[in-house]
Amino acid sequence: MMRILEGGTSTTVQDLGRFGQYHIGMPPSGAMDQFSHRVANALVGNDEDAAALEMTYQGSTIEFTEDAVIALTGAEMPVELDGEPVPMYSAVRVEAGQTLDAEFATEGARTYLAVAGGIDVPEVMGSRSTYTLVGIGGLEGRTLQEGDELPVGDGGADAEAVLGNSVAEERVAGVAPEEGVRVIVGLFDYRLTDESRAELTDAEWTVTPEADRVGYRLEGPELDFVEREQPFGAGTDPSNVVDVGYPIGSIQLPQQPIVVMRDAVTGGGYATVGTVISTDRDVLAQRRTHETVSFEAVTLEEAVEARTARNERLEAIVESLDP
């Protein structure tokens, strides 16, 4: 059992996501930085789809009521176990009665805490991921708070076998803020003026305080749409289209851009002008409020290559670990 003494800014239970329900308006949820989530599970010998904690900015304080093996990945977060610093990207033994205390992240936004055996909350529609808007998954469908108790699954890996596990830093996806975020420009990009279309990838965008699991609202130059007579049913504003489904990672333009993230609304009537590629959604998820984002236009081929390279990196990590 993991007993929550302090919830932190926004800590939720997440696995890889809930699929097959988009058509009823249910977004996938799941870990925002999928790469870090997978590495955390691999370090403690879990299956890749085991549920772990996603701690945003200020982490949680957690008392363990039983022996456990844990690993921390993702955003740099100072973490102590009964006052002793805990290394990130390593499998670490926790003894019954010990308290883990996570501080404010120093780089990146989201830290993953995996525990051998996984966090054993009930599955909802095939996933343990928390989706707070309608209150499903995770623990009672909400962020964690003081007094919560999380069961840990049994059938975890042999503790002795995984305890030597650690991942060299150079193998790990960076959370550094200078990386560009690659996008495939498209969907309704033809609605933008040529100037604004260029501006989308030339400008430096700033992450606003409204940046969470639902979406990342960005601030930057004003983008303009080509004037037209609006199609029937779309609504009168030039940014309006007849309501469509939004891809996760798509950039919609009510006025300033919003990148649709994993707890997003599944559809709506704002023109979308491109989509962050799957690999770089992990990078964007680690971007903090007030940091900048630059979009880099890539081809479909380059997006697929980026994903392949990421899969190979992940595979190399998993293969280097026990068991």
């Binding site: 996008v183 495939i184 498209g186 969907l187 199609p231 029937f232 049913g233 779309a234 289209v241 007849v242 469509v244 489904g245 891809p247 996760i248 990672g249 798509s250 979308t272 989509t275 962050v276 590629i277 799957s278 690999t279 479909l300 997006a303 697929v304 980026a306 994903r307």
Partner: peptide, 18 residues
């Protein structure tokens, strides 16, 4: 037909509702 990143395909049948 439009690619939404490397993991979505979006297909617009018409700009107008009917």
């Amino acid at each position: 037909y439009e690619h939404g990143g490397d993991d979505h395909v979006f297909v617009e049948l018409d700009e107008s509702m009917s």
